[in-house]
Simulated scan of single mutants.
Amino acid sequence: MKLSDGFDARRLRPRGPGNWRMRFAAILAALFAAVGVLLTMAGAASLLGRAPSLGALNDSTAAATTLLVLGLLLLWAGIAVWRMCRRRLRRPSDLSMAPHLMKKRD
């Protein structure tokens, strides 16, 4: 079978919806993970007694422990959602063919 140079198989496939929602969700999840890291570090610093700029967190260990747990939960949730979005973004939605079955071109 002769293939012409102007043939493009992508024109035959219908265009799917854009994946900007998943990209936005991945960015938001990465931001949540970063905030979780910062909250965890602030809570740990307050528990260790080295948090001069945290204000009222120096007074009680309960507030510092709450901040530490909240930061860990936010970090865990951010990483989980980010991984889910990245997995969905990388999932192929077009026709798939094994590379060894395609015609070799010089």
Rank of each mutant, 00 (worst) to 15 (best):
A30K: 08
R21A: 15
L38R: 03
L38M: 11
R50P: 11
A29H: 00
A26Q: 04
P17W: 09
S46K: 10
W20I: 07
M22G: 02
N19D: 14
A42K: 11
D59M: 14
L38H: 09
S46C: 14
P17N: 11
A44N: 06
D59A: 15
S46M: 09
A30G: 10
G55Q: 08
R50K: 14
G49S: 03
G55K: 08
M41W: 15
G49C: 01
S53H: 14
A26S: 00
V37D: 10
L47A: 08
G49H: 00
F24T: 10
A30S: 02
N19W: 14
L31I: 07
M22I: 04
M22K: 06
A33R: 02
R21K: 15
W20C: 06
T40F: 01
A44Y: 06
P52K: 03
L54D: 05
A25F: 05
M22D: 06
L38F: 12
A51R: 00
R23G: 08
A42V: 11
V37K: 08
N58G: 15
T40L: 03
N19M: 15
A25R: 08
W20P: 07
D59T: 15
G49T: 02
L57V: 03
L39H: 07
L31C: 10
L28Q: 15
G36P: 00
D59L: 15
G18W: 03
A51L: 04
A33V: 02
A29V: 00
L47S: 10
L47F: 12
T40Y: 02
M22F: 13
P52A: 04
V35P: 00
S46R: 12
G36V: 05
A42M: 12
L47Y: 10
G55V: 11
R23I: 09
M22T: 10
R23K: 08
A45Y: 01
G49N: 03
W20A: 07
G49L: 00
F32P: 03
A44Q: 07
A51M: 04
A29Q: 01
A44H: 08
N58Q: 14
A26N: 03
M41C: 14
L57D: 02
L57I: 04
F24V: 05
P52M: 00
G18L: 08
V35Y: 04
N58L: 13
L57W: 07
L31W: 05
R23S: 06
A34N: 09
N58K: 11
P52V: 00
F32M: 00
G18A: 00
R50E: 14
A30W: 12
M41T: 13
A33I: 03
P52S: 01
P52Y: 03
I27R: 08
A30D: 05
V37M: 15
G43Q: 04
V35T: 04
A25N: 06
A33S: 07
V37R: 09
V35S: 04
A56R: 07
F32K: 01
R23M: 09
A25M: 02
G43F: 04
